[in-house]
Design a protein around this nucleic acid. Structure first.
Lengths: 194, 194
DNA sequence: TTTCTTGCATGATGGTTGTCATGTGAAATG
DNA sequence: CATTTCACATGACAACCATCATGCAAGAAA
């Protein structure tokens, strides 16, 4: 790759990093073109040589954010039962650190209601990222897992995302901690039940 | 109350109705002052004789939206076990109709991630509404329920909100239905376990 | 070296945002 | 009937928004 193309690629990465951070912290409408470009160390004029429009940037940024981020929550596949797996992942996901670090948090959680109000294109990207996460959660392919496992995986994701979203929507630190704890506990019980 | 005050009260109600609808459909930033006032049949100039500022309106609108809305999901208290209650409420809450009717949906669900990014005042209002819902779910007082019941109530709320939020964030109707089904099923199993 | 290409900056576009000052007509008050 | 009050409308404000036209300087190609 030429020097020229490398620099453009580096710029693109900086823009997507900034956009990914801003949209998780401030929401989709908070990640403005000028503000994102400024945080990336560029001016707003360069924007349209990288992306078709703002929505295009948001879609790419969602994909970019989850690329590195997913493995932080799913980790390396281990030899463990399905039940142990759910219990372990809940403990890793529903922490005070994850709750507080919105800028680097799981984008599926920090954007779950905003995706529902976004463009169809953005929703399609969101769905793709969700399915990729479900695939890795199921240890390969969500679509080919049996029906029971699919149901449990979906309910597990819903609860993880709901728990951490609620824990951020609340001011009382005690209630917030209790929400994380309740999610972790239920994941453990869900696992034991099988 | 004088004729004058009655008219002002009626205007206030219209504004809060419009704001509640717009913020659930378009998000907090989508419920603009001019746009809300226009839908309420007034001009933007009258706004500041009703509310201190936009954030003030959003807080009042959240409270207003949940005032009538909560009973739609919780219904009248019935003679039933705690387990039956959770299972019944999940069936009522996680429906395709609720998913589609964003304008009249449960505001705790449609705004859960936006609340986390909102002002401290808005978060305080959100927490208050969440606790009021938990109180009614527990049949009186959440704070005075025993620890196990509190945990289950919190996990139940997280899963309900997570399930319907995810079902809206996705384009595939099949996956969306499956998300609602998974939430309903897990609520039933959670109930049976006790 | 000369020409071409292009990533980025400067600057301007029309539209929208939240907020407020002023005016008006009608209800409330005396 | 005269006066005061006030809910609402008109209009203006600066700040912001996404988008694009133009210009330049530096790498690529000849």
């Amino acid at each position: 790759m030429s020097v020229r193309a490398e620099m453009k690629q580096a710029s693109r990465e900086k823009i997507l990093d900034a956009a990914g951070k801003q949209m998780r912290v401030e929401g989709l409408s908070g990640a403005g073109v000028a503000s994102v470009m400024s945080e990336a160390g560029l001016t707003h004029g360069a924007f349209y040589s990288h992306f078709k429009n703002k929505d295009d940037m948001l879609c790419q940024a969602l994909n970019h954010a989850l690329k590195d981020n997913r493995s932080r929550w799913l980790g390396q596949p281990k030899k463990e039962s399905w039940a142990q797996r759910l219990s372990r992942l809940a403990k890793r996901y529903l922490t005070g650190a994850h709750r507080g670090d919105l800028a680097d948090s799981c984008a599926l959680a920090s954007l779950c209601t905003e995706a529902g109000k976004g463009s169809d294109r953005f929703k399609a990207y969101y769905e793709q990222e969700l399915i990729e996460t479900l695939d890795q959660l199921c240890g390969g392919s969500f679509a080919q897992a049996d029906a029971d496992k699919q149901q449990e995986a979906l309910a597990f994701m819903s609860m993880m995302i709901g728990s951490i979203a609620l824990s951020r929507a609340v001011v009382s630190e005690q209630l917030s901690d209790q929400l994380l704890q309740a999610g972790t506990d239920l994941a453990g019980r869900l696992a034991d039940q099988d």
